[in-house]
């Protein structure tokens, strides 16, 4: 029932977002902060590019919305068509079925889904770090990682559960794994003892549901040696070979959108909240502001190039997967993330 409800909402969002490029065409000729950063092409021959979001509208995707709203994609010769969202494993299926051109997945999903005869390549990396946390309540007897043993842990049934599973395996923690969707209520109602959460989203949702920071035990996986970057953009290998330039332009416009969002956070939040409310998605500014700020810290990381996946991160992800989860077909970094 919940799934259908979300599907319906996503469909409505897609209809809305599909209309955005058309709106942006009215802004042709408008000078953007990032307009001069990359070589642009005339707007009269736009390349139609289908992009499937991995979740409903929120500040996690503010850079893409700003790029659309400000006409950055059009300036780079792209007519970006947003498609209804799906979880990591499902967005991959749409790529597999050629129902989309570009999807957004976390790095481990990108590596794990690289199978079934479809090779994917990473054309850009949004998050440079992992935002994943494991959270327990102190009043439920969880004051350390060792206290996780014997407890129920809620892990997403979509692709983002891999890091948590690697963590449990490496730390040799014996926990009852409960597949969960996106609700935080299993945790607030004590149906589970430990939940996985993104710092930029669920963690703040818990605080806004009346849980106090001092009452929570938080295991920050990125600080515990499991810093495998979250979201990146993936296309099929065939698509990449055929449209390398389009992929580059997409990433340039997307990163311009992010830079604009960080430079104009209130404008970006207005846009995100407008999209969420039009789609009847519960939204409040303080949470979206938290999320945008966290995204800024995930994207603009010292010593890393914004928008690019590093070889070290890729190799660490492959290594952890191989050692603590399951064997995967690991392509050389240069093939997984070509940079030509």
């Amino acid at each position: 029932m919940r799934f259908l409800r979300m599907t319906a909402i996503c469909f409505a969002i897609a209809l809305l977002l599909l209309s955005l490029p058309a709106c942006n065409s009215k802004q042709e000729g408008k000078v953007s902060d990032f307009e001069q950063s990359e070589s642009g092409v005339p707007n009269d021959e736009l390349f139609v590019l289908r992009f499937r979001q991995k979740w409903h509208p929120q500040a996690q995707f503010a850079g893409i919305y700003m790029a659309i709203d400000k006409g950055f994609y059009a300036q780079y010769g792209i007519d970006l068509r947003l498609q209804p969202h799906a979880a990591d494993s499902l967005v991959f299926r749409t790529l597999y079925n050629k129902n989309t051109d570009i999807v957004q997945m976390d790095l481990i999903s990108g590596i794990m889904e690289n199978k079934d005869g479809l090779r994917v390549v990473n054309i850009g990396q949004v998050s440079q770090n992992s935002s994943q946390l494991l959270i327990g309540k102190k009043n439920r007897g969880i004051n350390s990682i060792a206290d996780f043993n014997g407890k129920k842990i809620g892990l997403w049934c979509s692709g983002s559960h891999y890091i948590s599973r690697i963590f449990l395996a490496k730390e040799k923690l014996d926990m009852e794994i409960v597949p969960v969707n996106w609700s935080i209520n299993l945790f607030t109602s004590n149906a589970i003892d430990v939940t996985n959460a993104m710092r930029f989203n669920e963690y703040n949702q818990l605080l806004q549901a009346g849980l106090k920071e001092e009452d929570l035990f938080v295991a920050d996986l990125s600080a515990l040696g499991y810093n495998i970057p979250d979201d990146g953009f993936y296309v099929s290998n065939d698509f990449y070979n055929e449209h390398k330039d389009i992929c580059k332009r997409f990433m340039a416009a997307t990163m311009d959108g992010w830079h604009y969002a960080f430079a104009h956070p209130e404008e970006a939040l207005d846009l995100v909240l407008r999209l969420m409310r039009k789609n009847n998605i519960p939204a409040n500014r303080s949470h979206q502001s938290w999320m945008l700020n966290e995204m800024k810290m995930l994207i603009l990381v010292p010593d890393k190039t914004p928008g690019r996946l590093t070889k070290a991160d890729y190799l660490r992800a492959v290594s952890l997967l191989q050692e603590f989860y399951q064997p995967v077909k690991a392509y050389p970094f240069e093939e997984f993330c070509p940079n030509d």
Binding site: M1, R2, K152, V180, S183, S189, A191
Partner: peptide, 14 residues
Amino acid sequence: INYFFGDWFQIPLM
């Protein structure tokens, strides 16, 4: 429809 992940089902079940 996978209703198993709905709060109305999953939480009382657990």
